[in-house]
Design a protein around this nucleic acid. Structure first.
Length: 355
DNA sequence: GCGATCAGCT
DNA sequence: CACAGCTGATCGC
């Protein structure tokens, strides 16, 4: 965004204000315990997790933005030093605990930075977030939308997370005598584990640091670090492997469940591919699928649109799909073919740098 | 010795 | 290809 004024998830350059969308490692690269560049704004949940991620961090630099509650900032214009007045509001992005979008309104125009987000059409939390966003927008036209375009391709279509959770529960149900091992990261998929805990009325094992995270998130009584208390364990994804599963299975019949955001079918000779008798994979994505991204753009009809995810072979410029949804604000015709212009061959477009 | 960056892997 | 992210090697100070 406005270089030198506002930095969202960017930590390696001088700026007048810094904003953290969420605490995944790829958004905190450059942040460290000895941070001293300036004030950092984040959500209440990110703030609660902050000391455990960055011990010794100067907490006087942390500014908590309540969800849906605008905060006024005074910045200085880079050209003439004049005061710039900006309102910023954090909106739940439903990507992981504490994840938010940032809506900036004021002298820099109306800019929405989506951060990583997943707004499923059937999700209550997402529905509330959408209401909040529309309320704070109050009819303002969005000049620029920085969009999570991770899966911005019509080929990406996958079920909502509660359906995926149901699939995991079914797998566990079908294997009543197995130990179950689920691969998870340091933050995310808590809802999945909570649903499993409730469905089987049992605690779920997690490693000690993960238990601390659960407690900081206010999830008490559903998780344990004691192996004997449960047959269901959530282990770090990086230690989840075929070799690990084989070793565990030799001690006691074990089944691995890998909830993965990777939505394409793997090929042979790929380590993701190796279909393994002990491993079930379930599509579980914390990013919006194409249809959900399209709904989001249609809701906002921004004048300009930019992707936030760096280049990859399956990245397509969101403008390619959504330009017809942008601008003429009063257009009430509903062109129901966001993928109309899709070429049958996926045409990779290299993005510029992440901004 | 430390942090930052990268290669490798899952 | 690569959701997110760990480990370990290496580079620069």
């Amino acid at each position: 965004m406005e270089r030198g004024l506002i930095a969202v998830d960017r930590w390696n350059e001088e700026s007048q204000a810094y904003f953290l969308t969420h605490l995944h490692a790829d958004h905190t690269r450059g942040l460290s315990s000895d941070w001293s560049r300036g004030v950092l704004f984040c959500s209440p949940i990110s703030a609660a997790l902050f000391p455990s991620r960055f011990p010794g961090f100067d907490l006087s630099l942390l500014q908590v933005l309540e969800i849906g509650r605008p905060r006024s900032l005074k910045l200085a214009s880079r050209s003439d030093g004049q005061d710039l007045s900006v309102r910023v509001t954090a909106i739940d992005s439903c990507h992981c605990p504490g994840s938010v979008m940032f809506l900036f309104q004021g002298d820099l125009g109306c800019v929405l930075y989506s951060g990583d987000f997943r707004w499923e059409p059937t999700n209550e939390q997402a529905w509330r977030a959408k209401k909040t966003l529309l309320r704070v927008l109050g009819g303002d036209a969005v000049d620029l939308l920085h969009l999570d375009n991770t899966f911005c391709n019509p080929a990406f279509d996958f079920p909502p997370r509660d359906v995926a959770a149901r699939q995991v529960i079914d797998i566990v149900n079908r294997h009543p005598d197995h130990e179950i091992v689920i691969g998870v990261d340091t933050l995310g998929k808590e809802d999945l584990l909570v649903q499993i805990s409730q469905a089987f009325n049992t605690k779920v094992w997690v490693w000690p640091e993960r238990l601390e995270t659960m407690h900081l998130l206010g999830l008490n009584g559903m998780f344990t670090t004691q192996t004997a208390q449960t047959r269901i364990r959530a282990i770090p994804r990086y230690s989840f492997s075929a070799a690990t599963l084989v070793a565990l299975d030799s001690l006691h019949p074990t089944l691995g469940v890998m909830p993965s955001g990777l939505p394409w079918s793997p090929r042979p000779h790929d380590y993701y591919a190796a279909p393994h008798r002990l491993i079930h994979t379930v599509h579980f994505s914390a990013h919006s699928c194409f249809r959900e991204i399209a709904d989001f753009v249609r809701l906002l009809r921004p004048a300009k649109l930019a992707g936030t995810v760096p280049s990859s072979s399956c990245y397509l410029n969101p403008w390619h799909f959504f330009s017809h949804l942008c601008q003429p604000h009063s257009e009430s015709t509903s062109p129901k073919h966001p993928s109309k212009k899709r070429k049958s061959t996926v045409r990779p477009r290299i993005s510029e740098s992440r901004d």
